[in-house]
Amino acid sequence: MGTDQVRQIVEALGTGTMNVIGAVVFVLATIVFVMELAGYRPYLRRPFVRRHTTRWDAMALVKVAITAALFGAGLAIFAGVVFVPGVAYLRPAQAFTTVFGILFGLPGALGAGLGNFIGDIFAGTLTLGSIAGFIGNFMSAYVPYRIVHAARQADLSAARDFVRYVWAVIAGAFVIAFYIPWWLAVLGIIPSEVAWTAVFGNIWLNGLVTPLILGTILLRVLFPYVQRWNMYWADSERADPALRSDGRARRGAGDTRPVATGEEA
């Protein structure tokens, strides 16, 4: 699906419909963002709200810094390829948000938000839109992390793991593609028509193409090293053994069958 096809879909739905969808996504994503920073996590089954187990220790800060530095640098390097001045440009580095969200969990999501902020500063594109950029990119990492939430899924060793990864990419791209344009349109930073026909399509395609192509490669390459260095998110939290890198080993040396996961997004 190219830019023209996305524009045709937006024009068929109308800016009113896009604004309604964007408002719903914005409110829900912002609530989740605030909850996570406050130490709580939403779930799809009872209890619907629980305290999460992320520890903001030195290792967590290292993960935030790695993600922010790589994503911010990647955005700054490609900032010259502009579609809408100060708003939309080519973003190969968008793959980092998905990959480090899955690998590092909440620290990776926070690093993605900070990285976008850093990229805007160095590219000279820091505006009120950067607020939505911060939370939107946080969510573009957070959503895949909540979908691909176990080590046995993150290694992409099975076809069903790759299908789950594709679904995670689509969901993450959906959230950020609606979150940022709605903010830009409501504040009048750019005209509503431009927000939905140009910026939406650009963010949607960047959020899909680079994570599906570059992100798949990065995840396959980086996961074994992250696992070896005990940097996988579940290895440093009080997580169900089924989610950890050593989840299979805990079944016994002779039993390598996957352990049933106990977490639900």
Rank of each mutant, 00 (worst) to 15 (best):
R164V: 15
R164M: 15
Y165G: 12
Y165D: 06
Y165A: 10
A168L: 07
V169S: 04
V169K: 06
I170C: 09
A171Q: 10
V175F: 07
V175T: 13
V175L: 08
I176C: 10
A177I: 14
A177Q: 14
F178Q: 06
F178D: 06
I180W: 06
W182H: 12
W183M: 09
L184C: 04
L184Q: 07
A185W: 11
A185T: 12
L187N: 10
G188P: 11
P191K: 15
P191W: 15
S192R: 13
S192Y: 04
E193L: 13
T197G: 02
T197E: 05
A198G: 00
A198H: 07
V199S: 03
G201F: 05
N202D: 14
I203E: 06
L205Y: 03
L205P: 02
N206I: 09
N206G: 11
G207E: 06
T210F: 12
T210S: 08
P211L: 09
P211S: 04
L212M: 15
I213A: 10
L214R: 01
T216F: 03
T216I: 01
T216A: 03
I217L: 15
L218H: 00
L219G: 00
L219M: 10
L219V: 02
R220I: 01
R220L: 04
L222D: 00
F223C: 01
F223V: 01
F223P: 00
F223H: 03
P224F: 01
P224E: 02
Y225H: 09
V226A: 13
V226M: 08
Q227E: 15
Q227T: 11
R228V: 00
W229C: 02
W229I: 01
W229T: 07
Y232D: 01
W233L: 02
A234S: 08
A234E: 03
D235A: 08
D235N: 05
D235W: 05
R238N: 12
R238P: 00
A239Y: 03
A239L: 08
D240F: 12
A242K: 05
A242H: 04
A242V: 11
S245F: 09
S245L: 09
S245Q: 06
D246A: 09
D246H: 12
D246S: 10
D246E: 13
G247N: 07
R248D: 11
